[in-house]
Design a protein around this nucleic acid. Structure first.
Length: 211
DNA sequence: ATTTAGATCCTCT
DNA sequence: GAGGATCTAAATG
């Protein structure tokens, strides 16, 4: 409580326009806010992200610049939401980054719930706090994010946006390969996953490291 | 604690 | 027709 590094400010144009890797790192410590139809605020601190590059990143839905109805918003300007549906039952939330046409985005993989926890718990079948948002599909369920939110402009929307927080020091940040992209050839090993070290709400417990 | 399989359906080839 | 940027419950050591 002694340190309040920067006053909370809404993320705008310039923040989202950076490349996916910078945004993925900078989002750690920021807050994702979703305002429900009845006005209740659901929010959490972002603690785990993954950068998906444009161009030839084979792990990315935008690989090879192939635009489809599904990934169209990924080719929009930085600041749009990209929400997709997978495995016949799950949604995942991304923040589009860079400039229009590049196809870069950052997947939000885990949050530490901070507001509207009771509502989140209801959405998640009454699970414990560490199970609410500790995974990309879990947090979508907890916040009520669906395909309906695909393409929403986080720079202007009053119901879905990002507020600055942190910052998280470099010493507290870990990196690893992205999860679940083994099919992506050489890109599977790229360390494009960013997370807050030793955080209890991560999607996976990190291995105990020792000197 | 770790591993395995099943759920389930939209999207693209 | 095939295959997911996943999660959960159930089985197993």
């Amino acid at each position: 409580m002694s340190t309040r590094a920067c006053k909370p400010e809404r993320w705008g144009e310039a923040d989202f326009a950076r490349d996916a890797q910078q945004v993925a790192r900078s989002l750690l410590g920021a807050t994702l806010v979703r305002v429900c139809d009845d006005g209740e605020r659901l929010a959490g601190t972002i603690i785990e992200t993954e950068a998906y590059l444009g161009g030839d990143d084979l792990a990315s839905h935008s690989a090879g610049g192939r635009r489809t109805a599904r990934n169209e918003s990924m080719f929009g300007p930085g600041g749009l939401a990209y929400v997709y549906f997978v495995y016949g039952m799950h949604h995942c939330f991304n923040v589009v980054t860079g400039r229009a046409g590049e196809g870069q985005a950052v997947l939000i993989r885990a949050l530490e719930p901070t507001e509207g926890i009771d509502r989140m718990r209801a959405h998640r079948g009454g699970r414990g706090d560490r199970e609410l948002c500790s995974g990309p599909a879990k947090l979508c369920k907890a916040l009520g994010l669906t395909r309906q939110h695909d393409g929403v402009d986080l720079r202007e929307s009053s119901t879905l946006f990002v507020v600055s927080g942190g910052p998280i020091a470099d010493e507290a940040v870990g990196r690893s390969a992205r999860i679940g992209v083994d099919y992506a050839g050489g890109w599977a090993a790229a360390e494009l996953r960013f997370f807050v070290l030793n955080h209890p709400h991560l999607s996976r417990r990190e291995p105990v490291s020792h000197a």
